[in-house]
Structure formats: structure tokens, C-alpha cells
């Protein structure tokens, strides 16, 4: 078990190293941000001085190592535009995004898996057919459009829920959260639904396919032959067996939802990192872009690492080092 953890940890560090190289050279290979930092009418001296100050005159690999050394000390540089440490900038906005993403993915998973198992268990009932038809829609309709319709209906037409912003927050452990207050909840409702819908469709499909496959296996037939009730079979056998694909996808989706939050945050003016990155891309604020990408990569790697650990907990075959 320990060997397994160490092995996966080393892999994770390796992936992070590769990602940092790709991200750094990807972002730094193009465009010249100096034009954004200094006014266009600045003299050549001011220009050169700024270039020197930002370290843009040195060779790229040197810049990378400086960047890496700083990164390891937790210093991701300063934003050209906001002129403040990137870490602080992103750190201040990350909780909003994480809150939104976690609420969406968790509710989509719980609801999606339940509906999907039902649809897989009774594939011919009209309820199942309705579930699947709706999930096809959720799959193909672009997320931003769903967001627009949600605003149009619930905020503009019915006036029940606010169309944007974060609302009241409560400080817990020095971080602002929306979910403990009613006003905060009303603000997070629409963006969370927006973000969750696509994931919901995916979870339904996954759970349905998994259920159909598992219910046809000899494991289930054998359990039935032993006289287990359907409820027990669903609870003890199916849920356990289906958790493996679900957890894999849950991890992947957590990462991709983090990225997709960019769209939702823009539509609902949700003050998270997604909106920050869109703004930074528009003005070529390199340190923020690099930091955001590194952060996303880091979260990806961390999620995968945690998922591997969860697997080891659930699946004895993984635990015993039989390579998955």
C-alpha cells in the first residue's frame, strides 16, 4: 500500500514538472507583454528598464529556472496589470470557484448516478426513456446557452433568483463562502445548476451504461441464485461495482468543471478565477495566465492522486499492487 502511494506520488510530481515546462514555454513563446505594461509613449530607457526589471531580457531557459525557483518558494510572480502577487490574486478568488465547482459536481453526481442506475435497471420504463431523452439534450446544448436561458427565465421573467454576483458570504477559516447564507445560496443556485447540467447528463449516461453491464454479469446472477433480494443486490453489489467507473469520471469531471467554470463565471459574473483568466488573456497578463494554468494542472494532478488513493481503498486488487 505504501509502495503504491509513493509510486503514484512520484508519478504526480513528474507530471507536474512536465506541465510546468509546457505551460511556461507555451505562454512565453508568443506575444510581447511589455507593450501592455508600459505606456506607448514611454521613452526607450523606460522601456529597457521595464524589460530588465521584469527579467524579459534574459534567455528563456534562465527565465524558466528563475520562475521554477520562485514557484517552489510559493512565489508565482506579480501580475503585470493588477501589480500584486499572483498568488494573492488567485488565492482571493479560488474559494468562489471551488465552492461553485464542488456544489455542482457533487450534486450532479448524486442525482445523476441515482437517475442513471434507475434508467439502467429498468431500461424499458417510460421514466427511463424520459431521463435519457433529457440527458441527450443536456449533452448537446452548449453550457453558455443554458446559462442564458436560466437567467432569462428565473431572473428576468420570474424574478425569483439574482442573475449574477456572489451575494452575502460568511467567513469560515478566513475564507468567504456563499453557501451558509440564504442570500448566498440564491446567488449560487443558477450558476451551480448551469454548471451541473452537463455533468448530470454525463453521470446519467455513465451510471446507466454501467448498471446495464453489471446487471448482466454472473456476479449478479450468482447473487440472485443465492436468494439475495434485489434491494440488497443493488445496495451491496451494484453500488460497489459501479463506484469504480463513477469515481474515475468524478475525478476527471472535477478537473474539467474547474475549467468549464470559465464560461459559467462569465455569464453570471461570478467572481472566481475563471473570470480572472478571461480578463488576463485579453490583456496578455502572463504571470496570471501561467499561474492559472499551473494551478489547474496542479489541481488535476492532485485530484488524480487522491482518486488513485480512493481506488486503493475500494478495490483490493489495486491495493495489492496488481497494476490497474
Amino acid at each position: 500500500m505504501l509502495g503504491f502511494i509513493i509510486q503514484r506520488f512520484i508519478q504526480a510530481v513528474g507530471v507536474m514538472a512536465v506541465m510546468s515546462v509546457i505551460v511556461f514555454f507555451g505562454v512565453y513563446a508568443i506575444g510581447n507583454p511589455i507593450d501592455i505594461v508600459i505606456p506607448p509613449d514611454a521613452t526607450q530607457e523606460i522601456r529597457l528598464e521595464a524589460i530588465r526589471r521584469l527579467g524579459l531580457d534574459r534567455p528563456l531557459y534562465e527565465q524558466y529556472f528563475t520562475f521554477l525557483a520562485n514557484l517552489l518558494q510559493g512565489d508565482l510572480g506579480r501580475s503585470f496589470v493588477y501589480n500584486m502577487p499572483v498568488l494573492e490574486l488567485i488565492g482571493g478568488r479560488l474559494p468562489a470557484t471551488l465552492e461553485l465547482v464542488l456544489i455542482s459536481v457533487i450534486s450532479a453526481t448524486v442525482l445523476g448516478v441515482s437517475l442513471g442506475i434507475y434508467a439502467g435497471y429498468r431500461p424499458d420504463s417510460w421514466v427511463s426513456k424520459t431521463i435519457m431523452a433529457v440527458s441527450v439534450l443536456g449533452f448537446s446544448v452548449p453550457s453558455f446557452w443554458v446559462g442564458l436561458i436560466l437567467i432569462l427565465f428565473f431572473a428576468v421573467h420570474l424574478g425569483w433568483l439574482p442573475a449574477g454576483g456572489r451575494g452575502d458570504t460568511v467567513m469560515i477559516w478566513g475564507v468567504a463562502w456563499s453557501f451558509p447564507t440564504l442570500n448566498g445560496l440564491s446567488h449560487i443556485a443558477l450558476p451551480a445548476v448551469n454548471l451541473a447540467l452537463f455533468k448530470l447528463a454525463m453521470m446519467i449516461r455513465l451510471a446507466r451504461a454501467g448498471t446495464r453491464e453489471i446487471m448482466l454479469t454472473d456476479t449478479i446472477k450468482f447473487a440472485r441464485a443465492a436468494g439475495l433480494s434485489e434491494a440488497t443486490i443493488l445496495r451491496r453489489h451494484l453500488l460497489k461495482l459501479i463506484s469504480i467507473p463513477i469515481i474515475t469520471v468524478f475525478g476527471l469531471e472535477l478537473g474539467s468543471t474547474l475549467a468549464f467554470a470559465v464560461v459559467t463565471e462569465t455569464i453570471f459574473s461570478w467572481p472566481g478565477v475563471g473570470k480572472l483568466i478571461i480578463d488576463s488573456i485579453a490583456v496578455l497578463d502572463r504571470p496570471v495566465m501561467v499561474a492559472y494554468l499551473i494551478l489547474v494542472a496542479f489541481l488535476f494532478v492532485t485530484i488524480n492522486f487522491v482518486i488513485d488513493l480512493v481506488f486503493a481503498l475500494i478495490d483490493p486488487r489495486v491495493r495489492d499492487g496488481a497494476s490497474a
Partner: peptide, 16 residues
């Protein structure tokens, strides 16, 4: 494939 398409597209449009 493990990286979300939207993010990749976003970064590339930003760069190009």
C-alpha cells in the same frame, strides 16, 4: 484528452 478541450482552445486563441 484528460485536459478539458475548452481550456486548451481558450489558451490557444489567447496566444494566437
Amino acid at each position: 484528452l484528460s485536459f478539458p478541450a475548452i481550456l486548451l482552445a481558450l489558451v490557444i486563441v489567447a496566444l494566437l
